[in-house]
């Protein structure tokens, strides 16, 4: 990444300082809504579960490693246990043999959870329009953000993660109890 395109708040050598949410400031107090405070916390401490299957996984390793350094976004800690993670990152081809496993992992995750589909294969089957490949993971689980590319560049992955952070910051606390959400899960036959 050239020096001019550094993402705001992530300058090298400086700690990331997150802008406070909207609220009322006075002497000695700051008032905001619970929703925004929780959104702020969720946004900056996402624990991703890397579900890396193929080529995109290698590109994710690049994103994680020193050069692109994903830990700038509060994502230092990869959680390999679905029960402790907030963000399912599906990277790479999901074959039909793998689909039930992916679904199982998704159902094991606790709410709130987000899903990031990285790469053409996970999003749509990509170039593998064949009998053995699932044509997009949105056939088995709901997806929040799709990253195109085969494989996407690390910058694109970072962009996708920023999009997820935006979703996490602005999500209503009631969303997961709403009828729309329930309907969505019913559509995917997930209880």
């Amino acid at each position: 990444m050239s020096e001019k395109t550094i993402i705001p708040g992530t300058e090298r050598g400086k700690p990331t300082i997150v802008a406070p949410p909207e609220g009322h400031t006075g002497s000695g107090f700051f008032a905001t809504t619970v929703e925004q405070a929780i959104g702020l916390a969720r946004k900056n401490s996402l624990w991703p579960l890397p579900f890396a299957t193929s080529c995109c996984g290698i590109e994710f390793m690049s994103t994680m490693s020193a050069h692109y350094d994903l830990s700038r976004f509060g994502m230092e800690r990869l959680s390999f246990s679905p029960r402790q993670s907030d963000l399912l990152m599906v990277m790479g081809t999901i074959a039909k043999k793998m689909a039930p496993v992916l679904r199982e992992v998704y159902t094991q995750m606790a709410e709130p959870k987000w899903v990031l589909s990285m790469g053409a294969c996970a999003s749509s089957g990509g170039i593998f329009d064949s009998y053995s490949v699932l044509q997009g993971i949105d056939r088995v689980i709901p997806v929040d953000v799709y990253i195109p590319g085969c494989p996407p560049r690390p910058e694109q992955v970072i962009d996708g993660i920023l999009k997820i952070q935006e979703l996490a910051a602005n999500e209503s606390l009631r969303r997961r109890y709403s009828k729309e959400y329930e309907d969505l899960l019913t559509k995917y036959k997930i209880d």
């Binding site: 299957t53 074959a95 496993v101 329009d129 009998y131 053995s132």
Partner: peptide, 9 residues
Amino acid sequence: YIHRAFEKI
């Protein structure tokens, strides 16, 4: 688990 049918494609 990621059989993509290269030979068939």
